[in-house]
């Protein structure tokens, strides 16, 4: 993945205040660790030494429970310090990235949508939502996760699936042409039964490479002519060779997604650029 040029960034984020990529969360976290000063480190080492000696003394004095509790505190404190630094790095990253790209940051946002990905699971949440202009239109860049619960009682288990999304609202005229278009990576299977229940059908395009990389499904009511116009030869060629993009679109809701919670500015920029290209393709067909 190549870094975006300034002109690309300006076209994707017209309200950007800073075009250089802000640090990733990992870089901010490392900088936080490095910023611990020598005098603070001295106190930490003294604390650790005290925590090592204290359980031994307590054991010798005949207080085993107190010794165990003190030893547990020895482990707990570094964990808490790291957790605090990590939490701060996350907040700093999102605030810095949002400010640089002219977006507003909201923690634990709410969003409802009809696209299948955002209706999956037993619980859904959006830990970070950035709102503003992306690709020239109002959009949201979000971290999204859903949790599936299986089994019951002691056998109950939970699986959490994480995604990073860019969501746009399509103009009404475009939304009328496209009832539901779902372009997913070949690896994500929502299951045949679920696809049938969702009233959608698989589409095979004329490119073998495209069909081996992507799974294209559309709503049963989707007009095929409009679909083949959207997936023009040039666009299919771009999706194979120039950029990978996976999305779900239903009505006026277009959600471009990738797996995992991305916390690297360059990768978020790249996702937004790819999302803007998909949006552009929809709008071109309308024009």
């Amino acid at each position: 993945m190549a870094d975006l040029t300034h002109s690309q960034l300006q076209s994707v984020f017209p309200d950007a205040t800073e075009l250089e990529a802000p640090d990733s969360r990992a870089a901010i976290f490392r900088a936080g660790l490095r910023s611990i000063r020598t005098d603070q480190l001295t106190w930490v080492l003294l604390y650790v030494a005290g925590q090592v000696v204290a359980p031994l003394v307590l054991m010798a004095a005949g207080y085993p429970t107190a010794a165990v509790l003190t030893a547990a505190a020895l482990i707990l404190v570094p964990v808490v310090v790291i957790a605090v630094l990590f939490h701060r790095a996350t907040s700093t990253f999102w605030d810095t990235y949002a400010a640089a790209r002219g977006l507003s940051h909201e923690k634990n946002g709410r969003y409802t949508s009809d696209v299948p990905l955002l209706r999956k699971g037993d619980r859904r949440s959006f830990p970070h939502v950035l709102s503003g202009t992306i690709g020239g239109v109002a959009a949201r860049l979000m971290h999204y996760q859903y949790t599936e619960t299986s089994g019951s009682g002691e056998d109950q288990s939970e699986s959490t699936y994480r995604f990073t999304l860019v969501q746009f609202n399509l103009p009404a005229a475009v939304a009328r042409r496209y009832v539901g278009v779902y372009l997913r990576p070949k690896s994500i299977s929502f299951g045949r039964l679920q696809d049938r229940l969702a009233h959608d059908r698989g589409i095979t395009l004329a490119s073998t490479e495209f069909n081996s990389e992507y799974s294209l499904r559309v709503d049963n009511d989707q007009d095929d002519i409009a679909l083949y116009e959207l997936f023009s030869t040039t666009f299919v060629d771009q999706l194979i060779r120039e950029f990978r993009a996976t999305w779900e679109q239903r009505g006026d809701d277009l959600v471009v997604f990738e797996r995992g919670h991305v916390t690297d500015a360059a990768r978020l920029d790249d996702l937004c650029l790819r999302a803007a290209r998909v949006l552009q393709r929809y709008l071109e067909e309308h024009q």
Binding site: A206, E209, F210, T233, V236, D237
Partner: peptide, 10 residues
Amino acid sequence: QASRRIYNGN
């Protein structure tokens, strides 16, 4: 060119 790349891939 785009059609050619798709054809040759097939």
